[in-house]
Design a binder for these strands. Structure first.
Lengths: 131, 131, 131, 131
DNA sequence: GTGGTCTAGACCACC
DNA sequence: GTGGTCTAGACCACG
């Protein structure tokens, strides 16, 4: 599967599912008209509560990323790819802005922040290579 | 006052108070042995419940940033400045790491993330100049 | 339940809960990965306010004795047993020291204090047998 | 003076004053019909708030340990010595009982508690000799 | 059902 | 005036 859940994360589990489905669609791992895994199957694979998967799917439906195909399952819509690609960036921009605001409050200069970002990127890169 | 609350933030109000008191101490806006604003006063100024302020102060006490002076108020400890300066960076690093992790999950390349950070820094800088 | 609250105690209610949860863990009455009673349940059983229980649990979380399992409850950590066993003695030592200090201030000789302790131990032993 | 205040103690300052006056009387350091220091004098000597001293004296008056002598000051009553000696023991017994109760709750055996008391007595004795 | 947060208002001890 | 504790009750996110 293309999804990994961290139960100890700060993000809600259902939100992790939502995001990662979107990322998978944006990356082309699931294409329009293809079916996502059933609620039961995904819940079993991820070892989480079916209610949680159902909730994630419900939200994706309300965002018109998924649609129900009667008697068959949930399919990716044709408009999904464009939406997911857009959101991918927007979600990150919002978080970046929040961090910058926090830096401003704590009187950390933009240059210092930039250097922190570089440092952490380097660290994560090393870790990512190992993993 | 040196504190601003964002009710739409992802961070709990009490946590915003905790962080910003730390930032104020790190920046020298409140010095050791000085009193922080009283629970009631700060609550009134920020238009929040005294219990919420009390909770923030309680946490700062448990971190030995503040101590109670009975019948007088809460004073900044001598060790507070060093602690807060250290944390100032650490708190931000944590949030930067979280954003990078998010980017990794959504398969956004490090270079792309770096460019987003630059863009947003530039935007905030303009806003900051206006304000 | 394994907890008893004394409303006439010098200790705050939330502190009594904190201590007794620690004692229960040290004694093996609650084991790692098991859930402590829910906030609402314990509050009902002890006839105290849920906020008071929540405050006690919050402190135990900050000491890494408990962790939240989202939507499920609060679980005892693996490191909790060792911590609680250590503290069990330390908490008592602190109180013993306080009493000795009080005795010193009131110029009661150590021998006299020791004899008081013996007397009271004997009295409590008798009561304990009856109960 | 025969009084020492610990501002960081768990005991209220006014209570420390009350207790230590009583101890001084029980020990014969101040005798019946003698005057205690004036509120202003004692407050200055101990570097505490005069209100705090006044409150302590008020309580001692209500317990008939002290009486006002018009235009002169506060004098120790004739019944004071007996009262103070009695209380000295009773106060300690209550605290000893509380500690024993706590030990019972945490399933610490009476023998173990006795040994803790001995240890701490020894430690305090050493410290007391140095000081 | 679970915990987390916040508000509102009370009472206490202390200075 | 100060902080500390407790109660009561609301709303939210999560499973």
């Amino acid at each position: 599967m293309f999804i990994r859940i961290q139960t100890d994360s700060e993000l809600a589990i259902y939100d992790q599912v939502v995001r990662q489905i979107k990322y998978a669609i944006a990356a082309g791992a699931i294409r329009p008209d293809e079916l996502v895994p059933s609620v039961r199957e995904l819940a079993r694979d991820l070892a989480i509560n079916p209610n949680t998967v159902a909730r994630a799917y419900r939200q994706l439906q309300s965002e018109k990323i998924l649609v129900t195909v009667r008697g068959t399952g949930l399919a990716v819509t044709s408009q999904a790819v464009a939406k997911c690609k857009k959101e991918r960036i927007a979600l990150l921009q919002k978080r970046v802005r929040d961090v910058i605001e926090e830096a401003r409050l704590s009187k950390i200069a933009p240059e210092e922040l930039a250097s922190i970002v570089e440092q952490e990127l380097a660290r994560m890169a090393v870790k990512g290579t190992q993993a």
